[in-house]
Amino acid sequence: MSAKTETAPSAPQRMRPVVGHDNREWWDHINEGQLTIQKCKECGTLRHPPRPMCWKCQSLEAEHMPASGKGIVYSFVVIHKPVIPGYEYPLAVAVVELEEGTRIVSNVVGIEAGDVKIGMPVKVSIEAVDETLTLPLFRPAS
């Protein structure tokens, strides 16, 4: 009798970010529970997403500073279709403007997708979305 192996049908997961040289530190901080913003060591310019060179002064030297996590919804969408496995619909995705001035794209959670508004104050909430992926999500601030 041939040996048979069975694997449980795995739950569909969110697509993974591509982590490489230029953003590993940023994702490491997320995995430690801290939202950060990359800062040029030469001229102090903040940038997000992290990149290897400063567009102001072309310095390759940068560090990551903690962000307050507070911001407002700068724009948002509510996605209905297509339905991709691993996500719940309708799905709210926003461009959040952080109080430090940089912007970040994420989901807005803890609120009906239809109730998200431009200008709404939000705060970061770093959450494990499955066993191996932690993401910075945003929740209404008040």
Binding site: R14, M15, R16, P17, V18, V19, N23, P49, V77, I79, I84, Y87, L91, V93, V105, S106, N107, V129, L133, L135
Partner: peptide
């Protein structure tokens, strides 16, 4: 990778 995880 900055957008996919959020379903965008």
């Amino acid at each position: 990778g900055w957008y996919m995880p959020y379903g965008l």
